[in-house]
Amino acid sequence: MNERNNNADTKKSPLGDLGVAIIKTNQLIKRFPMGKGEFTALKGIDLEFGTGEFAGLIGPSGSGKTTLLNILGSLDSPSDGEAIVLGQSVSKLSAKGAARLRKESLGFIFQSYNLLQVHTVFENVEFPLLLLNYTAAERKKMVMDALEWVGLTDKVKSKPPKLSGGECQRVAIARAMVKRPSLVLADEPTANLDAANSHNILKTMETLNRELKTTFLFATHDEKVIGYLKRKIFMKDGLVDHEEIVNN
């Protein structure tokens, strides 16, 4: 295991050799208004991630990991500095451009699954494909493939309220992966799951990462998740404290 500090030569992805950099942040700062003043959640983050990484932002609550994930997911914009995701500067993206980036290239997995409650499992997983104008036949095949990856082909007609937490999160993974995105951002994906379900989910994601070469970036403080990560970026008070690389 290598351990490195957040200095100039640690900006680059240590797994960058696997492919081109798909995320690059440069002195990324995010401030939020708080009362009459401001709270700085990110205080100048310099990071780079390459294709096919299985990395995580690790830190306690308030360390800035979710804020960073939101910016990289173009759900939020930086106050200063730059975040380039798949060759596009997040701060320069229009609302439409950001939506297109999310629609075409990003997958999200959330702590509380965020499934559409009144839609069936099939419809939840189909949703990103509807936005991308796939034909019904293409959608059906892609959805069934995705559900096969997560082992939920027998639940296509079920609705989220009828599923267990683990099953819901597997649906969320299928939804994130169905369009074969370049990057999946997962915010505390195992926080609501027990140990067995957490390991199941993580193994699924690890397999997808390995087989589809999709980059996974987690925000977590769950030891179970940390154990699976190939690259661990420890954050503290809005800064990258240090990094660890796991060599197999």
Binding site: G73, K96, R100, R102, K103, F110, N114, P128
Partner: peptide, 16 residues
């Protein structure tokens, strides 16, 4: 609200 956020995360604009 969560559903609205999810639509946006999945690629909808707020106008949509």
């Amino acid at each position: 609200q969560k559903e609205i956020g999810t639509y946006i995360a999945l690629g909808y604009t707020r106008k949509q």
